[in-house]
Amino acid sequence: MPTPDPDTSQAERDRRRAHRLAFGDILRSARADVGLSQEGLAELAEVSRPTIARIETGTHSVSIDRLWALAAGLGVPAHILIARTEDRAAELRDRLWYPR
């Protein structure tokens, strides 16, 4: 995981972490929905299987190029992955960092 920038607020670091975790959840779910293993998606997206594992666990951020490759491998438009990630990140922030 990246070293926190001392100039970045805790709230911003929490937001970024929530997005990484949420994208990992969404990617794992989408991969399962189409019946792909991590290895299968890695091959289609031209990345390594450990990279898929790190993305799914939220320890690795995704570049825009990698987002497009993952979406293409899943057969899902990238904007769908992003929208689902936004929804899931909001749930995670509410539940993990700002519980009611």
Rank of each mutant, 00 (worst) to 15 (best):
V34W: 12
L67D: 03
H19I: 02
A72S: 14
D33H: 13
A42W: 09
A11K: 08
T57G: 15
T51Q: 15
H79M: 09
H60M: 14
P99G: 09
A30Y: 06
W97D: 14
I80N: 10
A42F: 10
S29V: 01
E86Y: 10
S63D: 11
V47D: 05
R31D: 02
S63F: 09
A53K: 10
S61R: 07
P4A: 10
R93K: 14
D25N: 13
G75F: 11
D5N: 15
W68I: 00
T51E: 14
P2C: 00
G73V: 04
I52P: 01
F23M: 08
Q10E: 14
T57D: 15
A89P: 02
T51G: 00
E43N: 06
F23D: 00
G58H: 05
A42C: 07
E56M: 11
D33L: 11
A89L: 03
G24I: 02
G73P: 08
G73E: 12
E39C: 00
H79N: 12
F23T: 00
A90M: 06
V34E: 11
E56R: 06
E91T: 12
V76A: 08
A71G: 09
V76T: 14
P77E: 12
V76S: 06
G73L: 11
R93Q: 13
I55L: 10
L21Y: 06
A83T: 12
P4M: 01
L92N: 05
R15V: 00
I52G: 02
T51D: 11
A90E: 14
A45R: 04
A45I: 00
G75Q: 08
V47S: 06
S48P: 07
P99S: 07
R20M: 08
D25Q: 13
L44A: 15
D14N: 12
G35H: 13
A42D: 06
R17M: 11
D14L: 08
S9W: 09
L74M: 12
V47G: 05
A11L: 09
S48T: 15
P2F: 04
G75A: 09
F23E: 01
L92S: 04
R95C: 04
D7F: 14
I26W: 03
R17N: 11
M1K: 06
L92C: 10
S9K: 07
V47I: 15
E43Q: 12
S9D: 09
L36R: 04
L27H: 02
P2H: 06
E56T: 05
S48Q: 12
M1N: 03
Q38T: 03
Y98A: 14
G75E: 05
A83P: 02
A22F: 01
I82V: 15
R31S: 04
E86R: 10
A30I: 01
A18D: 02
I26S: 03
P4E: 05
A89Q: 03
W68V: 01
D14P: 00
L36Y: 10
V34D: 13
R15L: 12
A11M: 02
E56P: 09
D33K: 13
G73R: 07
P77H: 11
A71L: 07
W97R: 07
P77I: 01
A32C: 08
E12C: 01
A32I: 01
I82D: 02
L96R: 13
R20T: 01
G35I: 10
R95Y: 11
G58S: 10
L21F: 08
